[in-house]
Design a protein around this nucleic acid. Structure first.
Length: 751
DNA sequence: AGCACGCCGACT
DNA sequence: GTCGGCGTGCTC
């Protein structure tokens, strides 16, 4: 019988379209018992046989090979191999997100270039007292003597601190080691991302009846249908976190791992604090703000099973748990779960795949579930569990809608309505705190001509410039370009005026209204430095701040019982964005911010200011009626065939040349239609929309065109395949090489 | 990506 | 005559 040949199919650790396929290598005899799919290897590559890192995807057997193959050079000795399910997920990601193999692999595999952190310890070798005394009396160099004396008392110390204590140099220690009087050992220490985190025990509370019932429902459901996910719809303050803690506790009891996703890094510390308070060092955290070393250490702890609970933002969905029991996604509706870079995955989708492959359970939690999820629950694809009462016993805050049109008619053109001022005065009088939301991104300080309507725009990005008062400049928030402020309108010469208000202006306005109280601001400008976000929250919690003004980032997760008033300065901003999810986003934001009020025993009040008090997203969020909102919105989605009644693919074309992008976009659209027609979908070509300039038509001097496809009758995978063909094999025929193309399957922002 | 091959201009 | 510019093409 002929001997079989073992071949490893590998993906090179290089980011290039031409290398995005499997390469075959012979597995040398001695490796055959060691090699496993998922391992990291080194292979000779190219004419020069340059050694290159690669990942083994599959191992195949052949009787003969048609072309001479090279052999694997060696197996990397790290323990960070991908598991079989991870390999399967990489393949699935490539297909679903049209990304490259290596982009998928890099989600799972840590950057190995950073070594481990080592600490040298010095140990005293003088054991018995007699010998020690004898040795001590010997004549010795003064420094070495001093080291011995110090070390004799404390027995051992880290080298660095020993040198500091004695003032000795490394040479003195080395000399003693050479004489055998001391030894030096190496300890690999874990870089601890929790060193600044104060952990206090977080005891188990008694569950409310609603929480108890929810737990029973969830457990009972998973006993019967372990592979159907659960959607936990709980109003703000209903104690969803406690449900997460309980579910993770039972997972832990079964010796299985848990992953808890939170919408953003800024929210991890407070979640981690609670979980570490309950579960201690079994909790690991994974996110991009950790240093490379910290990341690697946490990764290793999870991989080895030392940490069984992982908390983090979307990328934590790739945590190397070996025995996954549950994945929980908090605030499931948040758009931050969608990656905006390749691979453009959605964490919930990855979670579903992982749960399917690893036989784990999936729980989605939200106060305002995404339309897609709730629609699935309505069709029994998810089990809906509701928490309708606040855990602390308080009721939902009362929301007062203030009509800004009327306010203006009656002479108040500021962003502080009379109702809001009255509410704040009342609140501060009782020594309570208040939160004010202003979504600056959509409604910021801009320079405008009151006569001709001219607005200062960035010459590179087609975006209105934002006025920064402190620096006295205009800044573009997309490319960062600065310009001086014109005094007169460049179009008609009229004196310009400053329109709108940013958080900064609100902060100042508030301070002058309440000069004896402390006003603080939290937005991207203030929280850019690491840790400042946390610092502001700590000051707020310690009641050193009375009024907190901020952007969206103050809407999420904050749980301060002393906050009794929440002001939404302008609800309309997100409503007017040209995006089919604008109403949903507005509803979610309003509900969430409102939920910050009255979380303690005192009643909360919300002032919602708007120019459109009759819009359903505004008044339904004011009465906090999710179900009615869902039914209004789902009808609109159905009528216009938006998700969940369709799936979208958005292709964006970028180029310095406007002519080239436009051409590429129109040619691509035509090509896609042609290809679809050839595949027999000629009846439904209207599902490929007309391409056009993107909502932000120019960023950093690059023009953008978008092409949207709405899959209703044409199956999604056919559309995906067609787009993929266009960009791979057909690319040269339809798209100029000057144009960059990005494909976004299931985009979160359309435009 | 990285590297060799290849085909044209200015130099000891 | 050669040195070197970076356009083109290939890598199991």
């Amino acid at each position: 019988m002929k001997k079989e040949i073992l071949i490893a199919q590998v993906i090179l650790d290089h980011y290039h379209a031409k290398l995005d396929h499997l390469f075959d290598y012979l597995i040398p005899e001695y490796m055959q018992t060691l090699i496993q799919p998922g391992m990291r290897v080194t292979v000779p590559f190219g004419r020069n046989n340059r050694l290159t890192e690669a990942f083994v995807m599959t191992i195949k057997y052949r009787q003969k090979v048609d072309q001479p193959l090279k052999e694997l050079a060696h197996i990397s000795d790290d323990a960070y191999a991908m598991t079989a399910t991870q390999i399967e997920l990489v393949q699935w990601m490539k297909k679903s997100y049209l990304c490259r193999y290596i982009e998928g692999i890099r989600c799972f595999v840590p950057n190995n270039r950073t070594g481990k952190k080592r600490v040298l310890w010095v140990h005293c070798q003088l054991e018995s007292d007699e010998l020690a005394e004898q040795q001590m009396k010997m004549k010795r160099a003064p420094m070495q003597q001093k080291i011995l004396e110090v070390l004799h008392d404390i027995r051992h110390a880290p080298l660095a601190s020993l040198l500091k204590m004695t003032g000795a140099s490394n040479g003195a220690v080395k000399a003693l080691a050479a004489k055998g009087l001391i030894t030096i050992s190496e300890e690999i220490v874990r870089r601890n991302p929790f060193k600044d985190l104060l952990t206090t025990p977080y005891p188990e509370p008694i569950l409310t009846d609603y929480q108890e019932r929810a737990m029973l429902l969830i457990r009972g459901h998973w006993e019967k249908k372990p592979d159907t996910p659960v959607l936990l719809h709980g109003i703000t303050g209903s104690g969803k976190t406690e449900i997460y803690l309980q579910l993770i506790k039972s997972t832990l009891e079964q010796q299985r791992d848990s992953i808890l996703l939170v919408p953003e890094i800024a929210l991890t510390p407070q979640m981690v604090q609670r979980f570490r308070g309950r579960f201690g060092d079994q909790v690991a955290v994974l996110h991009s703000h950790l240093s490379e070393g910290e990341k690697l250490d946490e990764w290793g702890r999870i991989h080895r099973g030392e940490a069984k609970i992982v908390i983090g933002p979307r990328s934590a969905i790739f945590a190397p748990c070996q025995n996954l029991g549950i994945i929980i996604i908090d605030e499931e509706h948040e758009h931050t779960y969608k990656s905006e870079q390749a691979p453009r995955y959605h964490a919930t989708e990855i979670a579903r795949q992982r749960c399917r492959l690893e036989k784990a359970q999936l729980l989605l939690g939200s106060a305002t579930p995404s339309l897609e999820s709730y629609h699935e629950a309505e069709h029994q694809k998810l089990l809906l569990v509701e928490l309708k009462e606040r855990a602390a016993g308080g009721c939902l805050p009362q929301v007062e809608v203030v009509d800004l049109r009327r306010e203006a008619r009656e002479g108040n053109r500021t962003l502080f309505s009379r109702s809001l001022i009255a509410a704040l005065e009342h609140c501060l009088g009782k020594k309570h705190q208040a939160i004010l939301l202003l979504n600056r991104r959509a409604f910021a300080t801009l320079v405008m001509c009151p006569r001709c309507g001219y607005v200062a725009k960035c010459s590179q990005c087609d975006i209105s410039m934002k006025w920064h008062r402190k620096e006295q400049v205009l800044k573009c928030h997309y490319c960062g370009q600065k310009e001086s402020v014109p005094e007169n309108c460049p179009e008609c010469g009229e004196l310009v005026s400053f329109q709108g208000a940013g958080t900064q202006k609100v902060e100042e306005g508030l301070q002058s209204l309440f000069p004896h109280h402390v006003v603080a601001r939290m937005d991207q400008d203030v929280t850019r430095q690491k840790g400042s976000h946390q610092a502001i929250l700590e000051r707020f919690e310690a009641k050193k701040i009375d009024l907190l003004v901020g952007t969206q980032m103050i809407a999420k997760g904050l749980d301060f019982p002393n906050v009794t008033v929440v002001g939404i300065l302008l609800a309309d901003t997100s409503l007017n964005l040209p995006d089919f999810r604008a109403a949903e986003k507005t509803f979610q934001l309003m509900t969430q911010v409102a939920g910050r009020a009255g979380r303690g025993t005192q009643e909360g009040k919300v002032i919602l200011q708007t120019f459109q008090p009759d819009h359903y997203a505004v008044h339904l969020s004011a009465i906090q009626d999710y179900h009615r909102f869902y039914h209004e919105e789902i009808q609109i989605r159905q009528r216009f065939l938006y998700p969940p009644f369709s799936r979208l693919i958005q292709v964006t074309f970028w180029s310095e040349s406007e002519e080239a992008v436009a051409k590429a976009a129109y040619h691509s659209a035509a090509a896609i239609r042609f290809l679809l027609e050839k595949s027999g979908y000629g009846e439904h070509l209207e599902e490929v929309m007309e391409p056009g300039p993107a909502l932000i038509a120019k960023i950093e001097n690059r023009y953008r065109y978008t092409l949207l496809m709405k899959s209703v009758q044409i199956p999604y995978h056919i559309m995906r395949k067609t787009v993929k063909y266009l960009l791979m094999e057909g690319r040269d025929r339809y798209i100029s090489p000057m144009v960059t193309v990005t494909i976004d399957p299931d985009p979160r922002f359309v435009g």
